[in-house]
């Protein structure tokens, strides 16, 4: 019932959630809640379609990444420099993303809800693995972004735990005042964390449009930006954990796409990720521990 084809579909569903969750980790570890990730995915998906339509798929991905990053810059300015409540800014950005995208779509493509069809990156067959009987469906005809995403999981982990940048990023999310007294630039680190989160979310949106669907469709993100936040919490703010959680969410989405068991209505599977999210965020599965200073604004006070 759950065959290789199904798993391949699950992984495709996982990618946007996982990418965005990795982004969210960067933002939250620096102390900033980024609930605007959904919006950053939306602008990422639209501008990626725009870029891919005019300049090809690779340019499309870059456009998507930049769009996500640009919106994140607004969030960083609002929350870090102007100390706006993180949730308020994030919600506002989601609304802005939705509105500007629809507007841009109308003025550029003359259609409010979809873009023309765009080209995807050439798919890859992973050598050797694509010959193995069980794994073959997972390893053949794979989007390069899928491979990049899993690479980014381990890169993120390495950067967070092994580099100066990672140490400082985590420090400003835990105790910005302590970091400041040691000469760490709290504002720069938090800008970096938020912008990186936007770049990731932008790539996630771009993947949806260019790689997954082959066009921009309004509402195609389907709240994945929020699910990604749940995956981040589920994964206890770590990249590996987030990967596990994203896979779980991806799997339940894939299950919902096809009627797997006859006597269980497919809506049940559709509901699963959200039920899981509530269970997870409610702290029922495990005690998760957010960065100590997350959601707070830092003011250099005396």
């Amino acid at each position: 019932m759950i065959g290789g084809e199904m798993l391949a579909s699950a992984i495709r569903m996982t990618i946007p959630i996982l990418l965005t969750a990795l982004g969210a980790i960067h933002a939250e570890r620096s102390g900033i809640v980024n609930i605007g990730l959904e919006g950053m995915m939306i602008v990422g998906s639209f501008w990626a379609a725009f870029g891919a339509y005019h300049y090809g798929p690779l340019a499309g991905l870059l456009f998507g990444i930049m769009a996500g990053g640009a919106l994140a810059l607004v969030h960083a300015a609002a929350t870090v420099t102007f100390r706006v409540d993180h949730i308020v800014s994030g919600v506002a950005l989601n609304i802005i993303a939705y509105g500007t995208t629809r507007f841009a779509s109308l003025s550029i493509f003359d259609r409010a809800t979809t873009s023309p069809h765009v080209q995807s990156l050439p798919a890859i067959d992973i050598p050797v693995l694509d010959r193995l009987p069980l794994i073959a469906p997972l390893a053949s005809n794979v989007s390069p972004v899928v491979i990049l995403t899993f690479a980014l999981v381990f890169l993120t982990r390495w950067v967070l735990s092994e580099t100066t940048f990672g140490l400082r990023l985590r420090a400003v999310g835990e105790n910005p005042q302590a970091a400041d007294t040691l000469g760490v630039n709290v504002f720069a680190m938090r800008y970096a964390g938020v912008i990186i989160s936007g770049l990731f979310a932008g790539l996630a949106g771009a993947y949806l449009a260019v790689e997954h669907t082959g066009m921009y469709v309004e509402g195609m993100t389907q709240g994945k930006g929020f699910i990604a936040l749940a995956a981040m919490i589920f994964g206890n703010w770590g990249p590996i954990g987030a990967m596990g959680a994203s896979l779980l969410f991806g799997l339940s989405e894939a299950l919902a796409l096809r009627q797997v068991v006859e006597f269980i209505p497919y809506e049940f599977f559709k509901m699963l990720p959200y039920v899981l999210t509530i269970i997870v965020v409610g702290g029922i599965v495990q005690r998760s521990r957010p960065p100590a200073a997350v959601g707070t604004s830092y003011e250099r006070g005396e």
């Binding site: 400082r168 835990e174 105790n175 302590a178």
Partner: peptide, 13 residues
Amino acid sequence: VDRFTVTENVILG
């Protein structure tokens, strides 16, 4: 930083 080790706290910055 409560969650960091002694070493991490000392080297930060």
